[in-house]
Design a protein around this nucleic acid. Structure first.
Lengths: 110, 110
DNA sequence: TCTCTGTGCAATCACATGGTTGCACAAAGA
DNA sequence: TCTTTGTGCAACCATGTGATTGCACAGAGA
């Protein structure tokens, strides 16, 4: 269930990819356009875009001879919802354990 | 703002760490106990727990001579909320651009 | 005390990955 | 047509990292 989630997190676990996503958040752009704004080569950016596209965080559209990329927020929302559910489950179990522990007769520890 | 987020995603971008988190989700455990259940060495698990602890996804408590770890769901919830906000923002801008585009007189393309 | 168990630290290794440069090629514009 | 610009592909390199083994040490129990 969470299997498909891990690559998304791996993709999000890189600073450069976040700067790419941030740049795309202000409007679609091609790899070359991004390379003008960011301190990395176009090829490096193309690789990152490949990673992001593979996990659905960006989409690409051909415009003439250039490939424009767009950040896909929906994927983030889906991921966020799953994350929240998992976190809530852990805390639920934790508080359940706490409640049980507190209902027990106190054990004396010397 | 998102700067502290990236290490969390990097920590979540590994299958083994997810199995550790999943195991901890069913109850606190030490590195050695986890090594009995998972197909990796104790030292490898200890490293992973170090990574997870550094980003606040697990906490440790000394019980006698053993170190017990617990999954912290709250950190996931915080992360999930930030993710959702970012995703919503991207989609908001995207739909805003769409709305503008659709309100414009249609351009003829030959 | 002797033994077993759980940690901690270090060295090592293989592989993934972020980054670069170089070259080739196709399409838009002068 | 010639030049420019944007891609695509490949080789290469350095570093990070997931994982291992080995050893040392401290605490709990027989």
């Amino acid at each position: 269930m969470t299997a498909m989630l891990v690559p998304v997190f791996a993709a999000l676990g890189d600073e450069t990819r976040w700067s790419i996503l941030a740049a795309l958040g202000e409007g679609d752009a091609s790899a070359s356009a991004l390379a003008d704004r960011l301190p990395v080569s176009r090829q490096a950016i193309a690789k990152h875009l490949g990673v992001l596209q593979q996990v659905g965080l960006v989409e690409s559209v051909r415009v003439g001879r250039e490939l424009r990329f767009r950040a896909v927020g929906a994927e983030l929302s889906v991921t966020a919802r799953k994350l929240d559910a998992i976190g809530a489950e852990w805390d639920r179990r934790l508080s359940a354990i706490k409640a049980i522990a507190e209902s027990l007769p106190r054990l004396e520890v010397e």
